[in-house]
Design a protein around this nucleic acid. Sequence first.
DNA 1: AATTGATCAGTTGTCCTACAACCTGAGGCT
DNA 2: AGCCTCAGGTTGTAGGACAACTGATCAATT
Lengths: 245, 245
Amino acid sequence: MSSSRSTGARVPLGREIAEDLRRRIVAGEFAPGSRLPSEAELCSQYRVSRVTVRTAAKALESQGLVDIRHGSGMFVVDFGGQIRSGLQELRSITETIEELGLNAKVRRVALTRRQADENERTRLDLTSDDAEVVAVHREILADDQVVAVSIDSIPASLVPASEDAGLGNGSVFAVLDRIGLTPVRALAEIHAVRGNDVPIAEGHVADELLILLDQVHYDRSGDPVAYSKTYFVEGRFQFVILRTR
Amino acid sequence: MSSSRSTGARVPLGREIAEDLRRRIVAGEFAPGSRLPSEAELCSQYRVSRVTVRTAAKALESQGLVDIRHGSGMFVVDFGGQIRSGLQELRSITETIEELGLNAKVRRVALTRRQADENERTRLDLTSDDAEVVAVHREILADDQVVAVSIDSIPASLVPASEDAGLGNGSVFAVLDRIGLTPVRALAEIHAVRGNDVPIAEGHVADELLILLDQVHYDRSGDPVAYSKTYFVEGRFQFVILRTR
DNA sequence: AATTGATCAGTTGTCCTACAACCTGAGGCT
DNA sequence: AGCCTCAGGTTGTAGGACAACTGATCAATT
């Protein structure tokens, strides 16, 4: 069971600093390959202890953004390209598109409350046979070109009917957030599929190849809060993963 | 430029403990959803300071393996399934297959030294026009079924001819390691392709759909050390990514 | 009886100081 | 040139302390 508390959710200092450092890095304040200020200096910049700075640094390191070298410093990882945001980080697709410098739009195709199918019941861990979901069918556009179509299913019991309206328009994340169910983890499967085999595609991708991102989102307490199938048109979206050791 | 030192590469304590904890978790010593020993207890188990334990814990957290909750403890993340190893972690394919409980084999199809094509020159950051690569073409089998075919290209200047023999047989990683060029990061693109369009497939995947993992591996100093294209047959390999915030 | 509120022990978050291990560059030496 | 030593800066680890948070217990109130 999940507590639907508003989760005062104070953000730990370490995470806050990590996010700020990340922002500064992607903003270009530190060039790729260059050295960041030493831990001691960051301490005085942020007025926190070294422990906290190190917490943030470690987080950035495991995101693959920086490289920490014993005895010499912390360096911004330098890839030829300037890709900073990979699939391993959980963020909305529109967010990712925007960060690539494109204009992201979302068009709601349909929104229904209906009985969950077997797949949805399994993925969302719904026990009762007549459990319902709110299903949102959308198209995602980058610079006015359709790059993906998606179906997001959320257990109906989690969504007050008053929120239905908001679901199609903005980001699903925003609505979940408002309800107090922020997804913090997602387990995604990747598949290759033919356009013809996609039931929700409206003709315009019939002969295309698609990449299917089949994922379940979980909140902090480990409960599944959303199940999405997102079909990306091959070639129109850069699908990048940063793999680290 | 990279120093090709043998990289004494002492493993930091924190990482060592993180790896051991990971091993214990996947081995089932701690059930999904259950609480791990407190930091204090882990300190005495491993005879290290709390700083080190926390370093390890944070690493596991950002790998998505555990969830650390302020005031209450560290918990093994509980997914319905028992998937523990996602694509976001850099490990060899054979390793991943083995961890799934399958029998992994590799069959070398060809190994050549040849001039790098333009794509390889770009990805591997080779400046001279007549730069050479060692190209290894292999098939990866899980339980005696072909799940992927791959081409790995390594700048010829990095590989002494004496190592060529080892390249096809075992893991490419092992050979790179021996040369002193351990990949610690990889930037991977994902594409969907048709079997017919894969030049190296030998007929047996003509009508299949494939997932192409197109990736460059980098060593610790940021130099590219290998470029691989791996074609996974759709449906025969579980392609999972754990996305975290 | 049920709810509320205070208290307490246990756990993670942050701070401080100190030292070990490591890397880099400067300078002196051959 | 190359090699060595050394000093200074940087990250890794240690130990102790307190703050902030969680979950449970239990008394007080309704």
